[in-house]
């Protein structure tokens, strides 16, 4: 049985609009929905921070702005300036993208300093560090979490939503185990309905980045009338990142890592028919 009420769910949601083609009208709509539903934040690009802050005045809904988004491959100074600028414009939270390449190169000091620069530039705002798990092995996810916490981040986050895949329960679980209960874990990317959201909450997510927020909340209202469909045991392969490994879109080492993991998984034989 799902023990989650609507009020709790809406306060876990960063209502998100990060498309390059979205203009003021979309941001205004986003803010209006956030105000109506009482979402925790709206998550937007920096150009709209001040606008959103004005639209949300008095609503209790916070503004979350992204920095170094979506690649995370800029200089620390650039990211720090972007984050500080967002906070000055009214952002209460900053979602930054980790330097994924440096993390994969094991340049850990650079990664830690990069995060720290953003954390310091963002004070007093909360900083969430997007790991972009689709480009990482489990070991790299663990390292990314540890470095983020060491640098003062308040949250670690799975994905930008622009990579080959988004949030998976396996990754969220791993991140939660790594950072412990005091640090937030945000799941984002590919969360389309309430069942997707609930799986991630169960895996340890304390915040959800959603562009389908309304549908997710509506799903909760339907769930109570037909809980079996939402609680039906999942075919594990359907929610495994290994199944979504894509050689065209991922580093070949990461792709190979997932495929190797898949072959070693006992579920492969059991559920092989679903790969038809």
């Amino acid at each position: 049985m799902i023990d989650l009420d609507r009020e709790t769910l809406v306060k876990m949601i960063d209502h998100t609009e990060l498309n390059a083609h979205s203009g003021e009208k979309k941001i205004a709509n986003l803010c209006s929905e956030a105000r109506s539903f009482g979402f925790y934040t709206v998550c937007i690009n920096g150009a709209y921070t001040r606008y959103a802050k004005e639209l949300l005045a008095g609503s209790g809904v916070l503004v979350c702005t992204v920095a170094g988004f979506p690649l995370g491959a800029g200089t620390s100074a650039a990211k720090a300036f972007e984050a500080g600028d967002a906070v000055r414009n009214g952002a209460a939270e900053v979602d930054m993208v980790i330097n994924v390449g440096a993390l994969r190169d094991k340049r850990h000091d650079l990664v830690r300093d990069d995060v720290r620069a953003v954390v310091e530039a963002s004070r007093p705002a909360l900083v969430k560090v997007i790991l972009e798990t689709c480009y990482l092995t489990d070991e790299e996810i663990i390292t990314g979490c540890k470095l983020s916490v060491e640098a003062g981040a308040g949250f670690v986050k799975t994905s930008t939503g622009f990579g080959p895949f988004g949030a998976f329960p396996a990754h969220v679980r791993l991140m939660r185990q790594t950072v412990g209960p005091e640090i937030g874990v945000k799941a984002a990317g590919g969360i389309r309905n309430f069942k997707d959201a609930w799986r991630l909450i169960q895996a340890g997510a304390s915040r959800l980045g959603l562009s389908s927020s309304v549908g997710v909340v509506e799903g909760l209202s339907l769930y109570k009338f037909a809980p079996t469909a939402w609680l039906e045991e999942e075919i594990p392969c359907h929610i495994c990142p290994a199944r979504f490994a894509n050689l065209d879109k991922q580093p070949k080492a990461v792709y190979a890592y997932y495929k190797k993991k898949c072959l070693a998984c006992p579920n492969v034989d059991k559920y092989n028919k679903f790969y038809e």
């Binding site: 389309r192 309905n193 309430f194 069942k195 997707d196 549908g215 509506e218 799903g219 339907l222 769930y223 469909a229 939402w230 039906e232 075919i235 359907h238």
Partner: peptide
Amino acid sequence: GHPVFLDRFS
């Protein structure tokens, strides 16, 4: 997959 994704063959 709306409002919940279910295995179509189950």
